[in-house]
Every structure is written in structure tokens, then in C-alpha cells.
Design a protein around this nucleic acid. Structure first.
Length: 318
DNA sequence: ATGATTTGACCACA
DNA sequence: TGTGGTCAAATCAT
């Protein structure tokens, strides 16, 4: 379950440590954002200059190690299926392990036994087409929403079980504007599998992640078959839900009606603006303009609202 | 065979 | 108590 390994359910000390780390991250991230005011930031800037990125990386690693420490898992182990899944690293195996655990804790025999995440970051975007944000999403649910013509689709990060990534995403057509979708991103990607700038993520030894992913429409734009399942859900979603992605020119509008032409940098940074995404990107601006992404294949953002709320902490990324 | 999607069921929260 | 978020078995796709 989503919340099991989240600080919400962790011991106070552990949570405080995590919060401290995240606080530092917020400060450093702000520094980084100030840097973005510069005319141009190159990879070499990011790597050599000031070590900010290195600091961010270190802090996130610290946070993640704190949150994924066995101690923490022990405390969660009693009440969730998430832990058993992540410990096995395989959702299918987890079913088996779940059985055994269930015998210990009868409560877990019940489906849907989980705790909802309340203090997770949420990003709401209104977009007129479904672009790929560089992450691998897996659909886990679809639901009819009251007073809404269209169903809402639920996605989680494909690396949820492998890496305990907590990110989830909801996609729903807007009633008034069926051509547009509201995308709600929840949680931060703690996985290291951002595909958009794979050559940057040199630390990742996984060969599958070293492929450039430019998948705005699975069938038409996927250049690398290894990533064919990325956002595959779009292709398969039924009837009304999420149709094929269409190439559009990009138009980005902030919540204050700020209209700007599509900018690959801006656009992408808004697609995944979580700290982990930013960290994983580590890009040069030129690196952002991927083949096939420039010009007409870019997506349309109309506006978005972002905030990162970690309990007592609020990182306003707007 | 393996992994992704569908869909009914279950539970937390307002 | 109703609604929405998630789980997980069944089904589908590769």
C-alpha cells in the first residue's frame, strides 16, 4: 500500500530525520531554481558549479535510506501490503508472501486495506493531450467519478515495487472540454528511472534505462522498443478514457493566465517538477530538446498548480 | 510465460 | 454513509 513506507507511518525520530533532510532539499532546490534564472545552465555548470546537485542527490539518498531503513519497515510491516511487496521486489511474489503474512495479521486478508496518503505532493495539470513525462506508469484503477461524465484513470509508478516509488497519477477528461485532461500527480518519484535524459543518469547501471525515450504516442513515436510499455496504458485504455496521443504544438499557461509559446525546457520542467525529477534530469538545456520532441510533437499544457506538502513542510514550486 | 490492463471489491475519509 | 483511492483476481497482450 502506498502509505506504508511513507513517513506518515514511521516513528517520530525517523520522520523528523526525513523532514530535516527534505527541508534541506527545499533550500538547496531553491538555490537551484535561482540558478535557472541564468541565461543558460549547462550540464557542466550543474556538475562543477557549487555542487548543489550533488548536495541534493546526497540529501535525497539520505532521506530514502532513512525511509527505507529496516527499522522503519519493521514498524510498517504490521499493517501494510506495500512493505511485503517492496521487500520481495516482485509484485507477484508478494502475493505469496502476502498470504503468509496474512495468516499473521488477519486484517491484511482484506483487500484494499491501506492507509491513504495525505501529506504527499500533488501537481495538477490541465493538458490537451497526453504527453509522456518520462516515467513509466502502470494503470491500477479506473473509476467513475460522481458528477463527472468521464472516468478517472489511476496510474502508479511502474517501479513502485522495485524501488518503492510512491508516485501516482490520475488522468481524467474534463467535462467541459473533452479534448483536455486533468492530470494529478501525487507523490514524488523516488525511482531512478526517468527515461528522458538517460545519458545523464550514468550512475544507473540498468541497461534498459539507457535508452532515449520519446514516446508521445506509443505506436508512432517510440524509437526504442525497450521502452514500448512506457505509458502504454494510454494506448490500451478503454472507450472513453485516454485516447492516443496527438502531436500538438505546445502552449503553456500558468495558473495566472500566463501564455507562452511552448518551450521545451519549461514544458519539460513542468511535466515532472518533483525534486527527484529535477535531480534525475541533470540536463543541459540542449539535452532537453530531444529529437521528435521539438516543434510539432510537443504537448500542450494549459495550466498547472503545484505544491509539495510534506506534513509540516510546504515546498511551493510555483 | 511474463507483464500489463480491466474491473469488482474493499476501505479510508469527509 | 457516500465517494474516491487502492487492491488484486481475472483477463488480455506480447
Amino acid at each position: 500500500m502506498e502509505s506504508s513506507s511513507w513517513p506518515e507511518s514511521s516513528p517520530t525520530n525517523t520522520r523528523i530525520k526525513a523532514i530535516q533532510e527534505l527541508t534541506k532539499c527545499g533550500i538547496i532546490t531553491n538555490k537551484l531554481r535561482e540558478m535557472q534564472g541564468l541565461p543558460k545552465i549547462t550540464v557542466s555548470d550543474l556538475k562543477s558549479d557549487n555542487g548543489v546537485v550533488v548536495q541534493i542527490l546526497g540529501m535525497f539518498e539520505n532521506t530514502l535510506s532513512i525511509l527505507s531503513s529496516p527499522k522503519l519497515n519493521e514498524t510498517c510491516n504490521n499493517s501494510t501490503k506495500d512493505v511485503k511487496s517492496s521487500s520481495s521486489g516482485n509484485p507477484h511474489n508478494s502475493a505469496d508472501s502476502g498470504e503468509s503474512i496474512n495468516t499473521i495479521s488477519p486484517k491484511k486478508t482484506k483487500r484494499g486495506c491501506y492507509k491513504r496518503r495525505k501529506n504527499v505532493s500533488t501537481t495538477i495539470e490541465i493538458t490537451s493531450n497526453l504527453f509522456d513525462d518520462g516515467y513509466a506508469w502502470r494503470k491500477y484503477g479506473q473509476k467513475t467519478i460522481l458528477n463527472s461524465k468521464h472516468q478517472r484513470n489511476y496510474y502508479r509508478c511502474s517501479h513502485k515495487f522495485e524501488q518503492g516509488c510512491q508516485a501516482t497519477k490520475q488522468v481524467q477528461k474534463i467535462d467541459d472540454e473533452p479534448s483536455k485532461y486533468r492530470i494529478t500527480l501525487s507523490g514524488l518519484h523516488t525511482c531512478n528511472n526517468l527515461l528522458r535524459a538517460p545519458h545523464i543518469i550514468v550512475e544507473d547501471s540498468s541497461p534498459k534505462d539507457n535508452s532515449v525515450f520519446i514516446n508521445f504516442e506509443t505506436k508512432r513515436f517510440t524509437e526504442n522498443h525497450k521502452v514500448g510499455t512506457r505509458f502504454q496504458s494510454v494506448k490500451h485504455t478503454s472507450k472513453e478514457s485516454v485516447p492516443s496521443l496527438k502531436p500538438l504544438k505546445h502552449e503553456q499557461v500558468s495558473s495566472v493566465e500566463h501564455h507562452t509559446p511552448w518551450d521545451p525546457i519549461e514544458g519539460l520542467s513542468h511535466v515532472s517538477f518533483e525534486p527527484m525529477s529535477l535531480m534525475s534530469l541533470g540536463f543541459d538545456y540542449e539535452d532537453m530538446v530531444l529529437p521528435g520532441m521539438s516543434s510539432s510533437t510537443c504537448s500542450t499544457h494549459d495550466y498547472k498548480i503545484e505544491s509539495f506538502d510534506y506534513g509540516d513542510l510546504l515546498f511551493d514550486m510555483c
